[in-house]
């Protein structure tokens, strides 16, 4: 759990006071990904970097799993938080193995344990340890380096991760692949993650919660669905884009919209699986010109169908209960 309480940063720039982050209050429950989103200079990166004190807050508090972090010294705090930056920041003078083991080594783990961990982590991101452990960062491609950047942040098994535009410097095709890999990893790891992005599509794809910033203010902190369905003001509405309804399609799958009817006959209509996103489903509807799509489950059994009307009906549904209620119920559960 990451909790920010009235977190504020005022920069002094040639005698002018610049409010970079104004009394930011937010709480990310354990195991969730929160994407901080906004245009350049909106305060999202400042807010992220105040959590591990790369930028020292002017005032306010940061709690990690209920602990007030102001009682920890900088290095102790940072060793407990995984940190991934856009420029990756692998140390060119160290092998991949030593890069991954940086935090475990600082924490004084036994060598055998940290080296074993490096091997496991490389395997997790499908990089062959026998090939990569002894290489240097400059001998890896950008995508490979970024994977190592992410697993370095995971090495000491910190419960919390901060990611500053981690996939920003990777080409669009590799970015999709790494995002998917990362989401898959997160399903197992259940880290609490703060993630800075300026890309609304990336945010919708990755986030459990999105926080939209502008000029140092946190404007809206909500689920992607609610941000897209109910932007709180004109700024958020413009920022998420006029096509926000179409972006919302990505949040749903065929299973969310189909008409259950096991007797649907497969004729000429295209077949989709239950996990197909409505974005892809509607693209298939438009491109094939068919009236409807036939939905099948994992065993290829027909479970129903969906057409334009069903998709529109799904979009017309109001998003799920608001954040406050969720937060309350979570607090009770904890």
């Amino acid at each position: 759990m990451i909790k920010l309480e009235k977190l504020t940063k005022i920069f002094d720039s040639y005698g002018h006071q610049v409010m970079a982050a104004n009394q930011i209050d937010m709480e990310v429950p354990s195991g969730e990904i929160c994407v901080l989103l906004g245009p350049s200079g909106c305060g999202k990166t400042t807010t992220l970097k105040m959590i591990n004190r790369i930028i020292h807050p002017t005032s306010g508090k940061v709690y990690i799993n209920g602990e007030d972090t102001s009682k920890l010294c900088d290095t102790e705090l940072r060793r407990r938080i995984g940190y991934v930056i856009q420029q990756i920041g692998l140390f060119p003078n160290m092998t991949i193995e030593d890069n991954i083991c940086v935090v475990p080594d600082l924490l004084g783990w036994p060598k055998a344990q940290s080296r074993k961990r490096a091997k496991e982590l490389l395997e997790m991101v499908a990089l062959d340890p026998s090939v990569f452990l002894k290489r240097y960062p400059a001998q890896l491609s950008g995508g490979q380096q970024q994977r190592v950047g992410v697993i370095r942040a995971l090495a000491a098994d910190a419960p919390v991760m901060l990611m500053d535009e981690p996939f920003g410097a990777i080409d669009p095709i590799n970015r999709e692949i790494i995002q998917d890999e990362f989401l898959k990893m997160q399903q197992e790891l259940n880290k609490t993650i703060m993630f800075v992005s300026h890309d609304i599509d990336e945010a919708v794809k990755m986030a459990d919660k999105i926080a939209i910033f502008s000029q140092g203010e946190l404007l809206q902190f909500d689920s992607p669905d609610r941000i897209l369905a109910n932007p709180i003001n004109e700024f958020v509405e413009n920022f998420v884009g006029a096509d926000r309804a179409i972006k919302r399609l990505r949040l749903f799958t065929a299973a969310d919209a189909l008409v259950a009817d096991a007797t649907t006959s497969i004729g000429t209509e295209p077949v989709v699986s239950l996990q197909t996103s409505l974005t892809d489903a509607s693209a298939m509807l438009y491109s094939s010109g068919a009236e409807r799509l036939c939905c099948v489950d994992a065993d290829n059994r027909i479970v129903g169908w969906l057409g334009h009307q069903q998709i529109a009906a799904r979009l017309a549904q109001a998003p799920q209960a608001s954040m406050e209620k969720e937060a309350l119920s979570c607090q009770k559960a904890c």
Partner: peptide
């Protein structure tokens, strides 16, 4: 590279480290 400095701070190295 400033990014490497930031990465070194971010992983929790002291100034001397």
């Amino acid at each position: 590279d400033p990014a490497l400095r930031e990465a070194a701070r971010g992983v929790g190295m002291s100034a001397l480290q």
